[in-house]
């Protein structure tokens, strides 16, 4: 890897992180709502499954994903039938890996902000003639928007730093799957790569810190609102 090929790496990382947040936003809102409002003994199990990627070693998560999505695996083959392409070792695989590891952070932030929405507001909305979907879109979701936003920012930051699951599921293909962490790892293993690695590390720190600050700002706004 040549030291001047850093901009494509940074842009790829941002693209992957944005893509990961984009694909997980709707399922994340659904899961956050379910975990906030669903009263059922199975809720704890669902919550455990959603949170699992947070505590699993990312390499293990990547391995499990590879088992599901690999070329000879059921989902991988289904994908091949639909699209004619493969999932593993592509940018799409990077997005999936980043989405899965960031998902718990997204869901937890959404869940907490939805728990804070007074359910009596939803009852009043129903009695005023708004059905469950309408009530969700007009009351619950707008009131938990700050939590959705801060969860999305956290998931974005987590996606930027994703390494373990990515290297297993997506490998290290220049221009395709070589994100900032993968590139740093690669540069540290080549002669004279250290200076370029340091620059990427600084970019990584700056992006992550910025994302965290935005997330803090969003949740502070939520509290004062």
């Amino acid at each position: 890897m040549t030291p001047d090929a850093q901009w494509p790496v940074i842009l790829l990382s941002i693209r992957v992180a944005v893509g990961a947040v984009a694909v997980s936003l709707v399922p994340g809102i659904a899961a956050g709502w379910l975990l906030a409002r669903w009263q059922h003994p199975l809720r704890a199990l669902v919550q455990g499954l959603v949170m699992l990627p947070l505590v699993l070693p990312p390499v293990v998560t990547g391995y499990l994903l590879l088992h599901l999505l690999g070329r000879s695996r059921p989902f991988g083959q289904l994908w091949h039938v639909w699209t004619g392409g493969h999932l593993a070792y592509t940018t799409t695989a990077c997005v999936i890996a980043a989405a899965v590891v960031g998902f718990p952070l997204l869901v937890e932030a959404i869940r907490l902000s939805m728990v804070a929405v007074d359910p009596r507001l939803e009852q009043v909305s129903r009695s005023l003639g708004r059905g469950p979907v309408d009530t969700f879109l007009r009351v619950t979701l707008p009131l938990s928007l700050p939590g959705v936003a801060s969860g999305a920012v956290l998931a974005f930051a987590r996606a930027l730093g994703e390494f373990g699951a990515t290297i297993v599921l997506a490998g290290n293909v220049a221009g395709e799957t070589r994100t900032i962490p993968v590139a740093v790892y690669t540069l540290l293993n080549v002669r004279d790569g250290e200076a370029a690695a340091t620059r990427l590390v600084l970019v990584s720190v700056a992006l992550s810190l910025a994302a965290l600050l935005v997330s803090f700002w969003l949740s502070a706004r939520k509290r004062s609102a």
């Binding site: 009852q123 009043v124 129903r126 009695s127 005023l128 003639g129 708004r130 059905g131 309408d134 009530t135």
Partner: peptide, 12 residues
């Protein structure tokens, strides 16, 4: 009949 179709508005 679900609440939204009862036409009974609630004031708390």
């Amino acid at each position: 009949v679900p609440p939204e179709r009862r036409r009974l508005a609630l004031v708390t």
